[in-house]
Nucleic acid binder design. Structure first.
Lengths: 143, 143
DNA sequence: GGGTTTTTCTGGAACGAATCAAGTAAAGCC
DNA sequence: GGCTTTACTTGATTCGTTCCAGAAAAACCC
């Protein structure tokens, strides 16, 4: 699928186009919010043998370049998504770890205002909504 | 210091009052947002030999009981604080990892409203403001 | 104070996620 | 096609954290 598009994005970020990089972008496009282990599996399904290092490197490079966003809810492993630059947030299920996107509640770049900044220069406000997803709520109502 | 107060809190939570538990509470009271390693050091300074297990156990028990709150900004180790139950947030320095409390911006339990909940039952909204603290901003202005 | 329950100690071993290091392969410029 | 730079491979290592088991100590009920 849109391999061309991934290539274009990589070049736009002055990054070399390699098969692992394209495969990682494709994997994250297909399944947002997956962890590194899953990305490795998906890339290997696509390309055959790829070292886990390569995937770790690619994820770091893509994060640094702003092509993917790394998210890491407390107590969970790092996860990645290709939706970047729109200041959206996440709902995380305490029970099963499922993650879903949530648009920013208060406009475009809203949450960026802390009530007191204590001299910090704040450049991002990250919001994580914790709760129970509908599946888990149905499965065990009182937990 | 207010050892009495820590005792009272422990009893209120139906927990036994032990020296390590009181020492952990005192340490976190004195220096909020420290990591486990630092808690171990502080407790040992106070009490002498204490196993790292004991501290890990205590931190877990206190977290489960709601006497301390565990926070874990992405890419950092777990940190703990005694300020609980008031829905406050944190500013984190990307450069040095310093953490400072920030009162909730929009009232008492405000951020608890996501724009779409996708069927999730949300019980907490955690906000992390990322930025640069004044020390780091002064030390290296353009980084 | 005696007895029961819970916690802590010792001293490991084990874990998974992530990183480091040095050599090999591939991408892209000419 | 050759060359330089950047990426990937392989394999080992770190780090925070958890788990283990039995023994010893302390907390609390009476």
């Amino acid at each position: 699928m849109a391999t061309r598009e991934h290539e274009t994005r990589l070049r736009a970020a002055s990054l070399r186009v390699t098969r692992p990089r394209v495969a990682v972008l494709a994997a994250l496009q297909e399944r947002p919010h997956v962890d590194t282990e899953t990305v490795i599996e998906m890339v290997r399904t696509e390309l055959g043998a790829v070292s886990h290092q390569a995937v770790y490197d690619v994820l770091r490079v893509l994060s640094d370049a702003g092509l993917v966003r790394r998210i890491q809810p407390a107590g969970a492993v790092a996860r990645y998504e290709t939706r970047v630059g729109d200041n959206h947030h996440h709902v995380v299920c305490r029970s099963c770890g499922a993650i879903t996107d949530v648009d920013c509640a208060v406009g475009s770049a809203p949450c960026l205002t802390a009530s007191q900044d204590h001299g910090f220069v704040v450049d991002e406000a990250e919001v994580v909504y914790w709760g129970t997803c509908s599946d888990c709520a149905t499965a065990r109502p009182h937990e």
